[in-house]
């Protein structure tokens, strides 16, 4: 086990859109399971990951009801990562950019995440051992 570090991840991609979200969640999950102190700054569409009102749906095209479809939800991935961090003795400060939240009307977050501002990202980057920015790409 490496020495615990303070790592910042800045996320831009919205949920339910592309593979980058899955890779991002995998990365944060690995860091969480190592017990690191993690700061996640979600901005632009990424503020939707922790939106509490995401809901599973059935899929008539697949012939699946709600339970059979078992649609994955980003908010559940976030909750699982928060739990993994706690179990490993780590800590995650999951910050949703307030400007981006207000633009999208997604102010209801799951427990364990909070509203913040771009200034939090600056503080996080300055106070971290390392940072990774995962921006949206075409």
């Amino acid at each position: 086990m490496a020495t615990k570090k303070k790592l910042t991840f800045a996320l831009m991609d919205p949920p339910f859109e592309n593979a980058r979200t899955v890779t991002t969640m995998r990365l944060i999950d690995i860091a969480a399971r190592r017990g690191h102190e993690i700061i996640v700054f979600a901005y632009e569409g990424a503020v939707g990951h922790a939106f509490a009102k995401q809901a599973k749906h059935a899929n008539a095209a697949h012939g699946h009801d709600l339970a059979q479809e078992d649609h994955p939800l980003a908010r559940e991935w976030v909750a699982n990562i928060l739990a993994a961090s706690q179990a490993a003795g780590g800590k995650i400060d999951w910050i949703n950019c307030g400007l981006c939240v207000d633009e999208r009307g997604v102010g209801e977050f799951i427990h364990g995440t909070r509203r913040g501002s771009p200034a939090d990202l600056l503080k996080a980057a300055e106070g971290s051992d390392n940072s990774l920015v995962i921006g949206t790409r075409g």
């Binding site: 790592l7 890779t23 690995i30 860091a31 390392n130």
Partner: peptide
Amino acid sequence: LDVVIDHLEDG
């Protein structure tokens, strides 16, 4: 994918 976290840890 752990290699990314390894390298972040390494600075």
